[in-house]
Amino acid sequence: VCKIPGCTKRYTDPSSLRKHVKTVH
């Protein structure tokens, strides 16, 4: 789960989560 408040994205792959946080937030 993305830890950013208001963001409901969920990832099973830690690298995908990291990429999401870097690119989306």
Rank of each mutant, 00 (worst) to 15 (best):
Ile4Tyr: 13
Val24Asn: 08
His25Trp: 01
His20Thr: 01
Pro5Met: 05
Pro14Gly: 10
Ile4Thr: 02
Cys7Asn: 02
Val24Pro: 08
Ile4Glu: 12
Cys7Gln: 02
Lys9Met: 13
Lys3Thr: 05
Lys3Ile: 07
Arg10Ser: 15
Ser15His: 08
Tyr11Lys: 07
Val1Tyr: 07
Val21Met: 14
Lys22Arg: 12
Ser16Asp: 14
Arg18Val: 15
Leu17Asp: 10
Lys22Ala: 15
Asp13Lys: 03
Tyr11Pro: 06
Leu17Tyr: 07
Gly6Met: 04
Val24Ser: 13
Val1His: 01
Pro5Cys: 04
Val21Trp: 03
Arg18Thr: 15
Cys7Ser: 03
Thr8Asn: 14
Cys7Leu: 00
Gly6Tyr: 02
Thr12Arg: 04
Val1Pro: 00
Arg10Leu: 07
Thr8His: 07
Pro14Arg: 05
Cys7Ile: 01
His20Trp: 00
His25Asp: 08
Lys3Met: 04
His25Lys: 05
Lys9Gly: 08
Thr23Val: 07
His25Phe: 00
Val1Met: 08
Thr8Gly: 13
Thr8Phe: 08
Lys19Met: 14
His20Asn: 04
Thr12Val: 07
Ser15Trp: 03
Lys9Asp: 12
Ser16Arg: 07
Ile4Pro: 00
Ser15Arg: 05
His20Ser: 02
Val21Asp: 10
Pro14Lys: 08
Lys22Pro: 06
Pro5Gln: 11
Thr23Tyr: 03
Thr23Asn: 12
Gly6Ile: 00
Val24Ile: 08
Lys19Gly: 13
Pro14Ala: 12
Leu17Ile: 05
Leu17Arg: 01
Leu17Asn: 05
Ser16Ile: 06
Thr12Ala: 08
Cys2Leu: 01
Lys22Asn: 14
Arg10Gln: 13
Val24Glu: 15
Arg18Ile: 12
Thr12Ser: 10
Thr12Asn: 13
Leu17Trp: 02
Cys7Trp: 00
Arg18Lys: 14
Arg10Trp: 08
Arg18Met: 15
Cys2Pro: 06
Cys2Phe: 02
Val1Leu: 05
His25Ser: 04
Leu17Pro: 06
Thr12Asp: 15
Val1Gly: 02
Thr8Ile: 06
Pro5Glu: 13
Gly6Arg: 00
Gly6Phe: 01
Lys22Met: 15
His20Asp: 10
Val21Glu: 15
Val24Ala: 12
Cys2Thr: 06
Cys2Asn: 05
Lys19Arg: 07
Ser15Phe: 05
Thr12Gly: 12
Thr8Val: 06
Val1Ile: 12
Asp13Trp: 01
Lys9His: 11
Ile4Asp: 11
Val21Lys: 01
Ser16Glu: 15
Gly6Trp: 02
His20Ala: 02
Thr23Ser: 11
Gly6Thr: 04
Pro14Cys: 11
Pro14Ile: 09
Gly6Cys: 00
Val21Ala: 06
Val1Asn: 08
Gly6Val: 00
Ser15Ala: 12
Arg18Gly: 13
Pro5Val: 09
Cys7Lys: 02
Thr23Gly: 09
Thr8Ser: 10
Thr23Trp: 03
Pro5Leu: 02
Leu17Lys: 03
Lys22Cys: 11
Ser16Asn: 11
Cys7Thr: 03
Lys19Pro: 04
Tyr11Val: 09
Cys2Gly: 05
Leu17Glu: 10
Ile4Lys: 00
Lys22Thr: 15
Leu17Thr: 07
Tyr11Trp: 02
Ser15Lys: 08
Asp13Val: 01
Thr8Leu: 08
Tyr11Glu: 14
Pro14Tyr: 09
Thr12Glu: 14
Arg18Phe: 13
Asp13Asn: 09
Lys19Val: 12
Pro14Met: 10
Gly6Asn: 04
Thr12Cys: 08
Lys22Gln: 15
Pro5Trp: 02
Lys19Phe: 10
Thr8Met: 07
Val21Leu: 05
Lys19Ile: 12
Val24Trp: 06
His20Leu: 00
Ile4His: 10
Pro14Gln: 09
Val1Trp: 00
Pro5Ser: 11
Arg10Asn: 09
Ser15Gly: 10
Cys2Lys: 00
Cys7Pro: 01
Val1Ala: 02
Thr8Ala: 11
Ser16Thr: 08
Val21Phe: 03
Gly6Asp: 06
Lys9Trp: 13
Cys2Glu: 04
Asp13Cys: 08
Pro14Leu: 09
Val1Ser: 04
Lys22Gly: 12
Pro14His: 06
Leu17His: 07
Pro14Ser: 11
Pro5Phe: 08
Ile4Trp: 05
Lys3Leu: 08
Cys2Gln: 03
Thr8Trp: 01
Val21Pro: 03
His25Ile: 01
Asp13Gln: 03
Ser16Leu: 14
Lys22Ser: 14
Lys3Tyr: 10
Cys2Trp: 00
Thr12Pro: 13
His25Met: 04
Pro5His: 03
Thr23Asp: 15
Tyr11Asn: 07
Lys9Ser: 12
Pro14Asp: 14
Arg10Gly: 10
Val1Arg: 00
His20Val: 02
Cys7Arg: 00
Arg10Ile: 11
Ser15Asp: 14
His20Lys: 00
Tyr11Ser: 11
Pro5Asn: 08
Lys3His: 06
Ser16Pro: 03
His25Val: 01
Asp13Thr: 02
Tyr11Ala: 07
Cys2Ser: 04
Ser15Cys: 10
Lys22Asp: 15
Cys7Gly: 03
Arg18Cys: 12
Pro14Phe: 07
Lys3Asn: 14
Val21Gly: 05
Thr8Asp: 13
Leu17Ser: 06
Tyr11Gly: 10
Arg18Asp: 15
Ser15Pro: 07
Val24Gly: 10
Arg10Val: 14
